[in-house]
Design a protein around this nucleic acid. Structure first.
Lengths: 213, 213
DNA sequence: GCTCGATTTGACCATTTGGTCAGGTTTTTC
DNA sequence: GAAAAACCTGACCAAATGGTCAAATCGAGC
């Protein structure tokens, strides 16, 4: 077999498994901080604790690392929406969705930022995923929301904009962390703050701002 | 006087004025797409229609251009919040604020993205602005919101999280434009879509999701 | 139309960057 | 325990990048 590079998606050996994981971790950290173009292969290698040459033995090029990291990412970013159950209670289901998205921001802020960075740069690498699987999933769940609205179980809001609002508000705690920390003195990594954020968010989304008559 | 570089903040001649403006425009475009590290001085120069040497005659270094662009930006990003009037009607005031922020996203998407990019990278250049003037302004306006809540004019929500929600939801239409376009087929630059977004957003923020009893 | 500073250019430079390669070392397999 | 495969390294390279500089050109005021 070609001894110069194990360019497979599935690791074959224990060392491959360990090192590919180390590289992907480091790459997520670096890409999320500097974007694709701003990231340096050297730095990823250093973060991963190996030589650049060795890194390039596992992933043949910078863009290959990037693609691998993004692929990992997309699944996890999308997953929570899949769990929205049409037969469940709207309030329970949506609260769970918000909670999951906020947890993602808290536990994987770097992934959140890398996703944001990729999209902000025009989503050159994941455009097809956005237009394909993501759109399909959103369309499907929009139907659920519309259905709930028809039955009077939620107010008749535009499903797309509701979804965008949930995405934006949950993601902001990861993506704009420095801004939020500058203002509040703490952030989403603080369990207390996270709890308050979740409570405020769900309260606002469900109850709105205006007093109930 | 030093004839090699006009490193002043205020342009002295008409040519300086025109060229500095052209450079800042181009820099905003390039920095917003690639972040600070990913941006290339060559590319800014090309976008501005001049040689790299000439660009560096006006701004001595890459970071100097970046700082100038950011300074321009911050004012405009902050301005809308300043207009929130404690003596006005909460609903009118907040609707106006939301409208202004959404307009900013629609009319200056590149500025929105550059701000996001800077904050996402840890806000290295504007941290002091966030912790100083921005925090002060937010604290001041949070008091207004709290005051309104005490009088029962809005529901008692956490002011910080309310502000974050407005920032996040309005900014998402600029920052995540490719994602939104992939799903809806259109975007915030389309006046019709913008109107719908504004209507949905204000409706959701004021009225919430749950049916009024 | 001359003069002097403002503007512009292109050649040039040191450093950084993504990537290659030949060969050495370790691990696995038989 | 040897052969083969997998793993790792350091030297190296071409291209790109941020920035300098001397000299050429332009343009406003006299």
């Amino acid at each position: 077999m070609d001894s110069t590079a194990p360019q497979q998606d599935t690791p074959r050996t224990r060392i491959q498994e360990k090192n590919r994981a180390r590289i992907l971790d480091a790459a997520l950290s670096v890409f999320s901080r500097f974007g694709y173009r701003g990231a340096r292969v050297d730095q990823i290698a250093e973060d991963a604790g190996m030589s650049k040459s060795n890194l390039l033995y596992y992933f043949g090029s910078k863009s290959e690392i990037y693609k691998a990291v993004l692929a990992d990412l997309l699944d996890r970013w999308l997953a929570p929406l899949r769990t929205l159950d049409p037969d469940g209670d709207p309030r329970t289901e949506l609260a769970a969705y918000i909670e999951q998205k906020l947890r993602f921001s808290a536990e994987h802020p770097e992934a959140s930022r890398l996703f944001a960075s990729e999209v902000m740069q025009g989503a050159p690498m994941i455009r097809d995923v956005l237009e394909g699987p993501l759109k399909a999933l959103v369309d499907e769940k929009s139907e659920v929301l519309r259905h709930w609205a028809e039955r009077g179980r939620i107010r008749p809001v535009d499903p797309h904009h509701l979804i965008f609002l949930i995405w934006a508000t949950t993601q902001t705690y990861a993506d704009f962390a420095p801004q939020i920390e500058a203002i509040t003195g703490t952030g989403i990594d603080d369990p207390k703050f996270r709890k308050e954020a979740l409570a405020s968010l769900t309260d606002l989304i469900f109850g709105g701002l205006l007093p109930r008559a």
